[in-house]
Amino acid sequence: MDQIHIRALEALQPFIHLANSNSATSPRFITNLITNATSSPNTYVFAELLETPAIQALRAPDTPDEYKGYLTLLEIFAWGTWQDYQATPSLPRLTAPQTLKLQLLSLLTLSTTLKPLTYASLMTALSITQPSDLETLVTKAIYSSLITARLSPATSPPSVNVTAVAPLRDVDPRALGGMVSVLTQWETRCRSVIGEIEAEIARIRSESARRREEEYGRNVVFEKALAGWGSEGGDGARRAAGWQGKESGGGPGGPGGVGLGGGNKREFSADDFDDDDDDGYWEHGVEGDGQGLGSRMDIDDGAGSLRLGLGARHPKRVLGKKS
């Protein structure tokens, strides 16, 4: 609870105690109690005093007319304004302290209901004729911690900028129905908004689950494809390695394989053949030839020659005959 409200309740307690005492039996005593409570400089709430049986006794039909207006006056101090006082007939005349108190309380209400809060509008609502008197009233309210405000007399139009209002006004029981209706409508809107939020949350969760499932499916397919590609790639690599081995060593075209072309030469030595064997070839070239070919010669198998290891040989070129 706000400190200003606590102080206001503490200031009202002596009057509540008097209203509940055994002496509070005559209408004159009760009306004097109301006058003193509304004139006290520190009392700003009055609902607790209004609820006492002694104050409510003024509603009795046998109450003299001169005292009946005090109950209405106390209700105006509790939740009404200066305009309500002026609009209600047969009310007691206010003293100067009561007038200042009601104007201060009215300023609290106007600060929350009147926009913009200009000098002109406040002076009309509070029956003030001079701007200086309004500024004095607002300054009093500020120093009493009733409002937090700043005067702006140089603006156009001059205005009072209120930023905070003390919770000191009571609620008119006649306004409870409207307040309940407004709160019910607000509750309905809140429930509707909450329902929409919950539906959106459910939709987001469902969409998130669907996306996770799709991503999981894509990952499974990708992993399977990656595993299959790795297996096929390994076999291909092994096949490629085997073919290269054949090319370089024992495979086709290698020393122990089948020659499929090209440029392979066999080196022969004339000493490998028996000179005594008349095979029809000269050792040192063709007869009558002035050039010797040496004791060794290369026999070119020729392109496209095929050596199968079956004793087949390519015919040798005739180098020379014995005479």
Results as ranks from 00 to 15, higher is better:
residue 263 G to K: 05
residue 296 R to A: 08
residue 267 E to G: 04
residue 224 K to L: 08
residue 215 E to V: 14
residue 285 G to R: 00
residue 266 R to K: 03
residue 309 G to F: 06
residue 210 R to C: 07
residue 204 I to W: 12
residue 256 G to R: 04
residue 223 E to M: 14
residue 302 G to E: 01
residue 203 R to H: 14
residue 248 S to R: 13
residue 219 N to E: 13
residue 297 M to T: 08
residue 200 E to G: 04
residue 201 I to F: 10
residue 292 G to W: 10
residue 244 Q to M: 11
residue 200 E to H: 10
residue 296 R to F: 03
residue 217 G to D: 02
residue 206 S to M: 12
residue 205 R to E: 15
residue 307 R to I: 02
residue 261 G to R: 02
residue 270 A to G: 05
residue 306 L to Q: 05
residue 278 D to S: 00
residue 310 L to W: 12
residue 228 G to D: 08
residue 294 G to V: 00
residue 283 E to Q: 07
residue 291 Q to R: 13
residue 246 K to Y: 09
residue 234 G to Q: 15
residue 291 Q to T: 06
residue 241 A to F: 02
residue 250 G to D: 12
residue 238 R to M: 11
residue 196 E to G: 02
residue 290 G to F: 05
residue 297 M to N: 09
residue 236 G to Y: 14
residue 309 G to R: 01
residue 288 G to F: 06
residue 305 S to Q: 08
residue 209 A to H: 12
residue 295 S to P: 05
residue 234 G to T: 14
residue 294 G to C: 01
residue 281 Y to P: 00
residue 199 A to M: 03
residue 265 K to G: 00
residue 261 G to L: 05
residue 301 D to H: 07
residue 214 E to H: 15
residue 285 G to Q: 02
residue 258 V to G: 05
residue 306 L to V: 15
residue 238 R to L: 11
residue 308 L to Y: 05
residue 297 M to R: 12
residue 278 D to R: 00
residue 212 R to F: 03
residue 310 L to K: 07
residue 261 G to D: 09
residue 272 D to F: 13
residue 244 Q to W: 04
residue 225 A to I: 07
residue 225 A to D: 08
residue 251 G to K: 00
residue 216 Y to S: 14
residue 248 S to E: 14
residue 271 D to L: 14
residue 232 E to K: 12
residue 234 G to A: 13
residue 262 G to Q: 06
residue 254 G to T: 03
residue 284 H to Y: 10
residue 287 E to I: 08
residue 248 S to T: 10
residue 235 D to W: 01
residue 225 A to R: 15
residue 283 E to W: 08
residue 292 G to V: 09
residue 205 R to Y: 09
residue 217 G to P: 01
residue 213 E to D: 15
residue 209 A to Y: 13
residue 279 D to F: 04
residue 254 G to M: 04
residue 204 I to E: 14
residue 272 D to V: 07
residue 298 D to N: 04
residue 205 R to T: 15
residue 258 V to T: 14
residue 203 R to D: 15
residue 224 K to E: 05
residue 299 I to C: 11
residue 283 E to D: 08
residue 237 A to G: 08
residue 254 G to C: 05
residue 213 E to S: 14
residue 203 R to I: 09
residue 280 G to R: 07
residue 210 R to P: 01
residue 257 G to M: 02
residue 243 W to N: 09
residue 252 P to Y: 05
residue 253 G to D: 00
residue 271 D to V: 10
residue 294 G to F: 04
residue 261 G to K: 04
residue 269 S to P: 00
residue 215 E to L: 13
residue 261 G to T: 07
residue 207 E to H: 11
residue 237 A to E: 11
residue 240 A to M: 02
